Amino acid sequence: MTSAIRLTPLDNTIKHHDHDFHQIVIGLDGHAEFEIEGLGGRIAALSGCIVPANHVHYYEGIGTNRQLIFDLPDDTPALSGIHREHARLFDAPRFFALDEPLHTYLNFLVQELAQPQAAQGDLLAATFLGCLRARLPQGSANAAPGRRRSLDLAALDDFIQRNLERRLSVADLADRACLSVAHFSECFREQAGVTPYQYLLRHRLTAARRLLAESRLPLNEIAARTGFASQSALSHAFRRVYHQSPGELRRRGTLQDRRGPEDTRHHLAHSTKV
């Protein structure tokens, strides 16, 4: 798939969603508020945020605003092949500011998008991602091979299970491990084979599925007990992974198989946004 670059304002109402592609949002005019899995910040002109794929994010435009948005699927040329190292930008959500050279490139990019025959989006995106990655700290990218810290996944599992109702974020897990979010995310993905957010989502969905099987709690109560922001957020994630809603699963009595975390992990790895 190819990259998409677009100019758009954000509504002045709080909205939230997630999607199966990475995203970078950069302010051109006005302001916007973002919260990405518990990490919050404000975007002003020439500052932005990185939204990794499948991370639930809340956003709201403040007054008149205009944003430059990069939509970047995993397999876009800007993140694969010779540019595959750019994908490390999306190990964790973060906010950033643009320096003067990137400001100049951004002006060129915006002008280029206005041309009838604009340059290929993947080329523009790859150039920007390479420049941005060179400017942002890469956590443990310079650590010597073989000396990466081993995470206590059993302790993290216990922490997650005891705190599911808190709507845990990746930052909460990183704090528990006494690491920065970027360093923790990199270590976690190497050790567990999935991102911390996918791991959290696996625990939430497994717990929600168990409550559906073992109780008659209403869906909004199950959502609250398993860390989802709302019943609709639970239903959205559940449908994407299990290909049916929680209500449908309960009504059809298909919970007898009691899929465990490994099955949920398989579904998470192959699910797509609906």
Rank of each mutant, 00 (worst) to 15 (best):
I69P: 12
I50A: 00
S47D: 00
A114Y: 12
L113D: 07
G41W: 03
L113P: 13
H103I: 12
Y58K: 02
V110K: 09
G48D: 03
F70Q: 04
L89G: 12
T104S: 05
A78P: 13
G48K: 02
A119P: 15
Y59I: 02
P52W: 05
Q120V: 14
H86F: 12
G81S: 09
A114P: 15
C49R: 00
I43G: 00
T104E: 06
G48S: 02
G61V: 08
N107G: 11
Y59H: 05
E100Q: 10
I43S: 00
S47C: 00
N54Q: 08
D74Q: 06
H57G: 07
E100W: 15
G121R: 11
Q111G: 10
R42M: 05
G63T: 08
L102R: 05
L109W: 07
H86E: 07
H103M: 07
R66P: 15
A97Y: 15
L106C: 00
G41M: 04
N54S: 06
F96Y: 11
H55K: 00
P73N: 10
L68T: 06
L102Q: 03
G41D: 03
A119M: 14
E112G: 12
H86W: 11
F70Y: 11
A44D: 14
A92H: 04
D91G: 07
R94H: 09
L102W: 05
F95T: 03
F96M: 06
E100V: 15
H83K: 03
L46C: 11
A92D: 01
G61K: 01
L109V: 08
C49F: 04
Q115W: 03
T76E: 06
D75I: 12
F96D: 04
Y105D: 02
T64I: 09
P101Y: 14
G41E: 03
E112A: 13
I50G: 01
A118F: 15
Q115E: 01
R66A: 11
R42D: 04
G63D: 01
L109F: 10
S47F: 00
L39Q: 08
L109C: 03
D75Y: 10
G48L: 04
H55A: 00
L102V: 04
F90Q: 01
Q115Y: 04
E85V: 14
G121M: 08
T64E: 04
F70C: 06
V110F: 14
L106M: 02
F90N: 00
L46K: 10
G61D: 01
C49T: 09
I69M: 09
F95C: 01
L98A: 09
F70T: 07
F96C: 05
T76H: 08
T64D: 04
P101H: 10
A78Q: 05
H57T: 12
G63I: 09
A97N: 14
V51P: 15
L98V: 15
L72A: 13
L72M: 13
S80D: 13
F96R: 05
Y105P: 04
F96S: 05
R66S: 12
A97T: 15
A97H: 15
P116S: 03
L72E: 13
P101T: 10
L102M: 05
L39Y: 10
A53M: 05
H86D: 07
T76Y: 10
S47W: 00
F108R: 08
F90C: 00
N54I: 12
I69Q: 06
T76D: 08
L102F: 07
N65L: 08
L109S: 02
D75W: 08
P52S: 02
P93A: 01
D71C: 07
E112R: 11
L109Q: 01
L72F: 15
L98Q: 12
Q111M: 08
P77C: 03
